[in-house]
């Protein structure tokens, strides 16, 4: 159903013929950041997580001294199941560590094989963020392209492609992902591929729907009438105007991909231990929970929760303005 906007807001043309509409353009992302707390929080968190991932990746791949974890996230310290220091001691410990060069404490404790939980929690973005970002981007690029072709050229071939995409979408997501990852060997790039396959149909559907609604718009017919060949109509006119739903969706898809990555590790069908990965950490700490050793699972969980929420907040902010 359509909602006619209040006619009073629709057009207040002044004498020069310029309609006064509150403008929303690129520059406004920055203003939005300053004005909306939720959006600002989301952006900041996402930036922090990206930075953490980048530090760790640069260290691992190029050997740069960018590692900021106090302990090696993959090597046990020998102190098993140490609880975190009480909050009251933190200021003193901080001063000691930073100014007196004392050995850093296990801020978040250690797990039952002696790995430092804090180091692993801040090293994990390298796994979680990489998987989620790459998977979401690959599925978006793939899905947008297929969606554009299927929405613009309507024939038997594209109809078949759509049916296959629909079929993929009707699969139980979690089980499909488990099968794809577990049977292909639980490597990081297999997880990326599995997630991209699972999420691509969403983008196909979104883009196709948008392309189809854009295709009947007047400017597309105008583009033809002016004398554009079909491929130019598709790529120069329809595509740039059909990207917005996908761009909004990509933010929440990254969030969902993080959830799925960690969920897979949690059930034992994700990355292999001892890779620092939030879901895996929660899973390893799970049996200790009923023994009262809460710290092994709680910190990585808070990290997931905040990160996913941040992506949702960013996605919502974008949707509000451009959806």
């Amino acid at each position: 159903m359509t909602i006619t906007p209040g006619p009073q807001v629709a057009a207040t043309a002044d004498a020069s013929g310029v309609v006064v509409i509150p403008k929303r353009r690129r520059i406004d992302i920055w203003r939005k950041y300053k004005e909306e707390k939720l959006f600002a929080f989301g952006c900041t968190m996402v930036a922090i997580m990206l930075l953490l991932a980048l530090c760790e990746i640069l260290h691992l791949e190029l050997g740069l001294p960018t590692r900021i974890t106090p302990y090696d996230p993959n090597f046990a310290t020998g102190n098993v199941s140490v609880p975190p220091p009480p909050l009251a001691d933190w200021p003193g410990l901080l001063v000691d560590t930073i100014f007196n060069g004392a050995k850093p404490p296990h801020w978040f404790g250690t797990d039952n094989s002696g790995l430092d939980v804090f180091s692993r929690t801040i090293a994990a973005p390298r796994t979680d963020m990489t998987i989620a970002l790459v998977a979401a981007l690959v599925s978006m690029l793939l899905g947008t392209f297929v969606g554009l072709i299927c929405g613009f050229y309507r024939n038997i071939a594209t109809e078949v492609v759509m049916r296959i995409s629909d079929l993929l979408q009707s699969f139980p997501v979690f089980i499909t992902a488990m099968v794809l990852v577990a049977l292909s060997g639980r490597q990081v790039w297999n997880i990326v591929l599995a997630l991209a396959i699972v999420y691509a149909p969403i983008f196909v559907r979104l883009t196709r729907a948008e392309v189809m609604s854009q295709s009947v718009r007047g400017y597309v017919e105008s583009a033809r009438a002016v004398g554009n060949p079909e491929w130019k109509v598709a790529f120069r006119h329809v595509l740039p105007n059909s990207l917005i739903p996908s761009l909004i969706q990509v933010s929440s898809t990254i969030g969902f991909a993080i959830l799925l990555t960690s969920g897979l590790s949690f059930v034992g069908a994700g990355v292999r231990p001892p890779t620092p990965e939030w879901g895996l950490m929660i899973s390893l700490g799970a049996p200790q929970i009923i023994l009262g050793e809460w710290w092994q699972s709680i910190f990585p969980g808070v990290a997931i929760s905040l990160t996913v929420f941040s992506f949702a907040a960013v996605g919502h902010g974008l949707e509000e303005d451009y959806g």
């Binding site: 929440s252 969902f256 969920g263 949690f266 929660i282 799970a286 699972s297 969980g301 996913v308 949702a312």
Partner: peptide, 9 residues
């Protein structure tokens, strides 16, 4: 969008 397994724990 929340990690339901973690909340469960």
């Amino acid at each position: 969008a929340q990690p339901e397994f973690w909340w469960g724990l």
